Lab assay of single mutants.
Amino acid sequence: SKDAAQYVYDEAQKGVTQVTVNGVTFKFDNWQKLLKYAQKLLN
């Protein structure tokens, strides 16, 4: 959902490398990768 994507995006902006959405945890090597993933979700 857009809300989940926005949440992931906001978390990535904080510099975190993992985020949990609806009980599913996504882990990334660095926050830039998390940010890229979030941007994909938002598009």
Rank of each mutant, 00 (worst) to 15 (best):
K33G: 02
K33S: 09
Y37S: 01
K2P: 04
K36T: 03
D29I: 14
V16D: 03
F28D: 03
L35S: 00
K40V: 03
N22H: 13
K14G: 11
N43D: 05
G23I: 15
W31C: 01
K33V: 10
L41S: 00
V21S: 06
K40H: 08
L34S: 00
K14W: 12
K2E: 08
T20Y: 02
V21D: 13
K33N: 05
Q18D: 03
L41N: 00
Q13P: 06
T17F: 12
Q39H: 02
K40I: 05
K36R: 07
Y7F: 11
K14Y: 04
N30F: 14
Q6R: 09
K36E: 08
T17H: 06
Q13H: 03
Q13L: 11
V19M: 12
N22D: 09
V16S: 11
T25E: 03
K40A: 05
D3S: 03
K33Y: 06
D10V: 13
K27C: 15
L34Q: 00
T17G: 09
K27T: 08
Y9T: 13
Q39P: 00
S1I: 11
L42N: 00
L34T: 00
K27M: 15
Y7R: 14
F26C: 14
Q6V: 10
G15I: 12
V8A: 03
L42D: 00
A12D: 12
D10Q: 06
G15Q: 10
A38P: 00
T17R: 05
D10A: 06
G23H: 07
Q6F: 03
A4P: 13
E11Y: 07
V16C: 15
N43W: 06
D29Q: 06
Y37G: 01
A12Q: 04
Q32W: 08
G23D: 09
Q18L: 12
V19F: 04
A5F: 09
K33T: 08
K2Q: 11
D3I: 14
D10R: 00
W31M: 05
D3Q: 08
L42V: 01
Q18Y: 06
V21F: 08
K27G: 11
F26S: 02
W31H: 01
G15T: 14
K14L: 10
T25Q: 05
Y37T: 06
V19Q: 13
Y9P: 14
N22W: 15
A38Y: 04
N43I: 04
V19S: 04
Y37N: 02
K27E: 04
E11A: 02
T17D: 08
Q6C: 15
N30H: 11
N22Q: 12
G23Q: 03
T20L: 14
L35R: 01
F26R: 08
Y7E: 14
V16W: 10
W31V: 02
N22K: 09
L35G: 00
L34H: 00
L42G: 00
E11D: 12
Y9D: 14
A12S: 08
K14H: 09
S1P: 14
N22R: 08
A5K: 04
S1W: 14
V16R: 06
N43L: 05
W31T: 00
A38V: 13
V8E: 14
D10E: 11
L41R: 01
V8I: 13
D29F: 13
K40L: 11
T25R: 05
F28Y: 05
A12Y: 08
S1E: 12
D29M: 07
V16L: 10
Q39V: 03
K14S: 08
Q18S: 03
V16Y: 06
K14C: 15
K36D: 05
F28G: 01
T17Y: 09
V19R: 07
A12R: 04
D3K: 02
S1Q: 07
D3E: 03
V19P: 08
Y7S: 15
W31R: 00
Q39I: 05
Q18P: 03
V8W: 14
A4S: 10
L42E: 00
N43K: 13
G23M: 07
V8P: 14
A12K: 04
V21Y: 01
K36A: 12
K40Y: 04
Y37F: 10
A5E: 09
K27W: 15
F26L: 10
T20M: 05
D3G: 06
K14Q: 11
W31A: 00
A4D: 14
Y7L: 15
V21K: 13
G15W: 11
D10N: 09
F26T: 10
F28Q: 01
Q18G: 07
Y9R: 03
T25V: 12
Y7C: 15
V21A: 14
V21W: 02
L42F: 07
D3W: 06
K36G: 08
V19W: 14
E11I: 10
D10I: 15
L34F: 03
L34E: 00
Q39T: 04
Q18R: 02
D29K: 03
V8Q: 12
Y9E: 14
V24E: 02
L42K: 01
G15M: 11
Y37Q: 07
F26D: 08
G15K: 10
V21C: 05
V16Q: 05
A12W: 09
K36C: 07
Y7A: 14
F26M: 09
F28N: 02
F28W: 10
Q32S: 04
F28E: 03
T17P: 05
N30Q: 09
D3N: 13
K36Y: 05
Y7T: 14
Y7Q: 15
A38L: 12
K27P: 14
A4H: 07
Q32A: 06
D3L: 06
L34A: 01
E11K: 10
G23N: 03
T20C: 02
V16E: 04
T20A: 12
V21M: 11
K14V: 11
D10S: 05
T17M: 07
D3T: 02
E11Q: 13
K14M: 12
Q32T: 06
Q32H: 12
E11R: 01
K40R: 04
L34R: 00
L41A: 01
A38Q: 00
F28P: 05
A4F: 08
Q32P: 06
D3A: 02
A38I: 11
V8F: 10
L42I: 02
K2C: 15
V8L: 12
Q6T: 02
K36N: 07
K33H: 08
G15F: 11
L41E: 00
F28T: 04
V24Y: 10
F26Q: 09
N30A: 07
Y37P: 00
V21L: 02
L35W: 02
A12L: 09
K27R: 12
V21P: 14
T17W: 13
Q6K: 05
S1T: 11
K27L: 15
Q39A: 05
E11P: 08
V16T: 04
Q32R: 04
Q39L: 08
Y37W: 05
K2I: 06
F26W: 07
V16N: 09
K27S: 14
F28M: 07
L41V: 01
T17K: 02
K40P: 01
W31G: 00
K27Y: 14
Q18K: 07
K14A: 09
T20G: 05
K27V: 15
N22A: 14
K2T: 13
A4C: 15
Q39C: 15
Q13N: 11
E11N: 08
S1A: 11
E11H: 08
L41W: 03
Y9K: 02
V8H: 03
K40D: 03
V16F: 07
T25N: 04
V19C: 15
A38H: 01
N22F: 15
Q18H: 10
A38T: 03
S1N: 11
G15D: 07
T20I: 06
D10H: 05
L42M: 01
T20E: 09
N43T: 02
Q13E: 10
L42A: 01
Q32Y: 08
N22P: 14
Q32K: 04
A5G: 06
F26H: 07
A5C: 15
D3C: 14
V21N: 05
A38C: 10
T20W: 14
K36H: 05
K33Q: 06
D29V: 14
K14P: 09
T20R: 13
G23C: 08
K2L: 11
L35F: 06
K27F: 14
Y7W: 13
Y37V: 03
T25Y: 06
Y37M: 10
Q13S: 07
L35A: 01
K33D: 08
Q6H: 08
V19K: 02
Q6S: 04
K14R: 08
V19N: 01
A4K: 13
Q32C: 15
K36M: 02
W31S: 00
Y37R: 02
F26V: 03
T25A: 05
G15C: 15
L35N: 00
L34N: 00
L41F: 03
Q6P: 01
A5N: 07
D29N: 12
A4T: 03
A5I: 07
Y37L: 15
F28I: 11
Q18A: 07
L34G: 00
T20N: 03
V21Q: 05
N43H: 03
F28H: 02
V16G: 04
A5D: 10
V24F: 07
A4M: 03
Q18W: 10
K27N: 13
A4Q: 07
N22I: 15
K2A: 09
K40T: 05
A4R: 04
Q39W: 12
V16K: 04
N43S: 03
G15V: 10
